[in-house]
Design a binder for these strands. Structure first.
Lengths: 188, 188
DNA sequence: AACAATATAGACAGGTCTGTATACTAGCAA
DNA sequence: TTGCTAGTATACAGACCTGTCTATATTGTT
């Protein structure tokens, strides 16, 4: 429906990602989106609400893209490898600027704020998805492994963002492989 | 020497850590530090220079603390375990608010800026330190292992910050242990 | 005591920030 | 026509931002 709302969210996503949530002002988003200020304040009562809408859409787009990509693979191990491959391709994109949720929780440290909680929820949803993937092979230790693989993925994101390490996803996958190998031995 | 300079850096560190670099204004730092504005601008020609001074001190304090802690342990494996234990204790501190360098590179995405480069350098110095620790056991693969263990540490930091996972360092260490075990088999 | 270095308060410029108020326009539907 | 909805332009309030300026005070050293 309201196309202006979508335009606003898309442009805000782009600018927040590359410029930070605090540093990017409303006026800049409005100018680049070609939307009047009052239109924005009718859709979003405050900047904070716009940020939350951005994060909500980002969470959906991000997870849908990943899950769709992984679905194209068959075996559980292939699926897990695909998770890291998806990250590898993400890191290589010219507009890659780290994880918007990690960045959001950096700027909004207070864990009781809605924005920080939105970031935490995204990470939890991702961990839960990993748990479903792992449940097919290691039902007993799926939960713990999911947390550990999530740590590897977040570490790779940070390495790609901070030190521009383009191999971070591959290096992280090798660690994950090692972990999975050990788990299959322990299972036997 | 100039105690005012130190007071400024300490207070700025505290405020930037919990409030973000952009969101915290000079005036707030000056008021809480009890320092006049002109005094600050004599020591630091701009806010950016103050941020750089904060990061420089943080890098030194951080690495010195870690290295001192690790030195109390003897065997190479014990030293590596101590690295994760140090992080575990860091995460448990009430003023823990993530890694100031990860947070800085989130707010200053442009990799050509001095601030982003200071963040990257810190991570590289840390990786290099890990490499020296690993060199004692796995001289051939120390470089690669150092990068991978650094990914684990950064992932743990993110987990502790975003989702308040207080066990992140322990979970990451178990993964590292697995990696080290595999490396010692391959070496033989 | 004289000097230089360091720090001080407080006002100020010029800009930006979020959010509000007002008055106007265009399209659509009953 | 009438009325409703969505959007626009523009100005504004009030706060906050970085950085500069001036004139004064404090301190330690020689």
């Amino acid at each position: 429906m309201s196309s202006k709302r979508e335009i606003l969210i898309d442009k805000a996503t782009e600018l927040f990602a590359s410029g930070g949530y605090t540093a990017i002002g409303i006026d800049r988003i409005l100018a680049e989106a070609g939307v009047a200020k009052m239109t924005m304040y009718k859709h979003f009562p405050s900047k904070q609400h716009l940020i939350l809408a951005v994060l909500k859409q980002r969470d959906e787009v991000f997870r849908t893209s990943l899950i769709t990509y992984v679905k194209q693979h068959n075996t559980p191990i292939d699926k897990l490898r695909a998770v890291f491959k998806w990250h590898h391709e993400w890191f290589a994109r010219p507009d890659f600027s780290g994880c918007m949720f990690i960045n959001a929780s950096a700027e909004f440290q207070d864990a009781t704020t809605d924005i920080h909680q939105a970031a935490a929820q995204h990470k939890q949803l991702l961990t839960h998805y990993l748990e479903t993937l792992l449940g097919d092979i290691f039902p007993a230790s799926a939960k713990k492994l999911a947390v550990q693989i999530n740590i590897l993925l977040d570490g790779a994101i940070v390495a790609a963002q901070v030190t521009s390490n383009h191999n971070a996803a591959k290096e992280a996958w090798e660690v994950a492989e090692c972990l999975l190998k050990q788990s299959s031995h322990q299972q036997a």
